[in-house]
């Protein structure tokens, strides 16, 4: 019997472990940034109103900070694995966010709208690696409650 098969038979205590809703907060934050991005993009090439996208970015940033705060309180967590995955995912999503930013700069977005786009891209580039690294590390952590 291979390792995979034996693991399938014996079950997985790690899968049942309760952890704070870091991924859910990250997905919420990502959704708000995407909505804000759609609002901004729908006005290109005109100057967009910034109130609604700005508010969405602020709430999105708050959700991200809340997720990081909850995550930082975890003591028994697979931190080495989290940071390895986070670093590589961050590299990938910084490139991805850079390309989106390049498209906006290339299309003559300037001033406050550009600043808001960049803030949203920073949140995006942090959100996705956080969700990926948390999802990976949660299944590598010991099967005891973190509460």
């Amino acid at each position: 019997m291979s390792d995979t098969v034996s693991a399938a038979v014996t079950g997985a205590p790690a899968a049942g472990r309760r952890l704070p809703p870091v991924a859910e907060l990250g997905i919420g934050s990502l959704a708000l940034v995407v909505i804000g991005g759609i609002l901004l993009a729908s006005y290109v090439p005109r100057r967009p109103p910034l109130a609604a996208p700005g508010a969405l970015a602020a709430v999105s940033g708050a959700l991200l900070v809340a997720g990081v705060f909850l995550l930082a309180r975890l003591e028994q967590f697979a931190w080495p694995r989290f940071f390895v995955v986070f670093r590589w995912a961050l590299l990938a999503y910084v490139i991805s966010a850079g390309m989106i930013g390049f498209a906006f700069v290339r299309d003559h977005t300037r001033g406050a709208p550009l600043a808001l786009v960049l803030v949203m891209l920073v949140i995006f580039a942090l959100d996705v690696p956080l969700i990926i690294a948390f999802t990976v590390a949660r299944y590598s952590s010991p099967p005891y409650s973190a509460d």
Binding site: D3, T4, V5, S6, A7, A8, V9, T10, G11, A12, A14, A15, A23, R81, V85, A89, V128, I131, I132, F134, T135, V136, Y139, S140
Partner: peptide, 21 residues
């Protein structure tokens, strides 16, 4: 994507967890 990466990382372990996968 997080699910995809997590499956791959799980499968690299000496004893991958079938339930998690």
């Amino acid at each position: 994507e997080p699910a995809n990466i997590a499956v791959l990382v799980e499968m690299r372990k000496a004893n991958p967890d079938g339930q998690v996968i």
